[in-house]
């Protein structure tokens, strides 16, 4: 099956398409002649310019969801378009809360499987070939679809760079959701935003992460302070998220975020495979750990064998002194 047309789910946050969707649009452009976006919400016409710049020529607008969780209604709209013969050869979803829901719903609706946790996507003889990081990224598995129908791919953030290609504003066309009945029963009644200072974890140039080696919750303040001095974001291992020291949104790794900053500073983190898979493609890695055999050192460009309670306060002092 040749790949002529690819659709990309364009999610919106803070009035802009999320970076993970732009990464997929710009990569799709290298794989197919026609790249189109699928969007929902009230702001589609406002983002058509950005989507066009990254390579989408058309935006299929599902429109306002009236407070519904996106999974069912957006999957319905896409399924209806496929049914009508307008479907693409492949649909790429960012691996987000809603992206995964929509892909899963659509999969069951059109009876096509989904390839998930994709970290690479290349054109092969019989269609697209996916790459998946398995066993904490120590191995790469490649996979592909067999049989007819569009390929559904859920792709992890930071798998490709987001690059503009100078296209004009994408044309907005309506892709109304059909009546989804009981599947569309879940409604959002209120949204709560947790306060964040500094850049987003997955967009920051510097990420400073802390793990169980910090000893206690209060010491996470060292991580936040160092991150802020470096104008970066504060991350965490799952151990301290599960322990309730920091919210889940800080978690880096297999079940958390993938980050690729210029510098990743791991403090008191052992370097379990599930953590490494989320950060080992950082451009530079600094690790501070008191155990010289900690696996984190195997990926570190600079490894400090030392106590975080000694090294971090001195580092923070010195950076403050520089002003």
């Amino acid at each position: 099956m040749s790949i002529d047309k690819i659709w990309v789910l364009a999610e919106v946050a803070d009035g802009k398409p999320i970076t993970a969707s732009l990464e997929l649009i710009s990569h799709a452009k290298s794989l197919a002649g026609t790249v189109e976006a699928v969007a929902y919400g009230e702001e589609t016409s406002a983002i058509a310019g950005t989507l066009g710049e990254y390579g989408a020529t058309t935006v299929h607008d599902v429109g306002d969801l009236g407070g519904s969780l996106p999974g069912a209604p957006v999957a319905d709209a896409i399924a209806a378009a496929i049914e009508a013969g307008n479907g693409p050869d492949a649909i790429l979803f960012p691996a987000t809360y809603d992206g995964r829901d929509i892909a899963g719903r659509l999969s069951a609706k059109i009876d096509r499987p989904v390839l998930t946790n994709v970290v690479g996507l290349v054109a092969g003889d019989g269609g697209l070939i996916t790459q998946h990081a398995v066993f904490g990224g120590a191995q790469i598995a490649t996979a592909r679809f067999v049989g007819d129908g569009p390929g559904l791919f859920v792709v992890r953030a930071k798998s490709f760079p987001a690059e503009t290609s100078g296209g004009g504003q994408a044309e907005v066309v309506a892709a109304a959701a059909t009546e989804s009945g009981p599947t569309n029963g879940a409604k959002i009644v209120a949204s709560h935003v947790e306060e964040r200072t500094g850049p987003k974890l997955d967009e920051a140039n510097v990420v400073v992460s802390g793990g169980r080696g910090l000893g206690e919750k209060e010491n996470y303040a060292l991580i936040e302070e160092l991150a802020s001095l470096l104008k970066g974001a504060a991350g965490a291992s799952r151990a301290i998220v599960d322990a309730g020291w920091v919210p889940y949104s800080h978690q880096v790794g297999q079940t958390g975020k993938t980050v690729k900053p210029t510098v990743y500073v791991a403090c008191g983190i052992s370097g379990a495979t599930q953590h490494l898979v989320g950060m080992k493609n950082s451009k530079n890695i600094v690790a501070i750990n008191k155990d010289q055999d900690a696996p984190i050192f195997s990926v570190a460009d600079l490894g400090i064998v030392g106590d975080v309670h000694k090294v971090l306060p001195k580092l923070i002092e010195a950076l403050k002194a520089r002003g």
Binding site: Q139, I140, V146, I285, F297, A300, L302, G306, K310, V311
Partner: peptide
């Protein structure tokens, strides 16, 4: 209707410089 075609070791990241903290790392 999907198949794994290959599994291979990913590129290993070379480890770099190691400094043992003597108070000035």
């Amino acid at each position: 209707r999907q198949e794994i075609t290959d599994v291979s070791a990913s590129e290993e990241r070379a480890s770099g410089e190691i400094v043992v903290d003597e108070g000035d790392a």
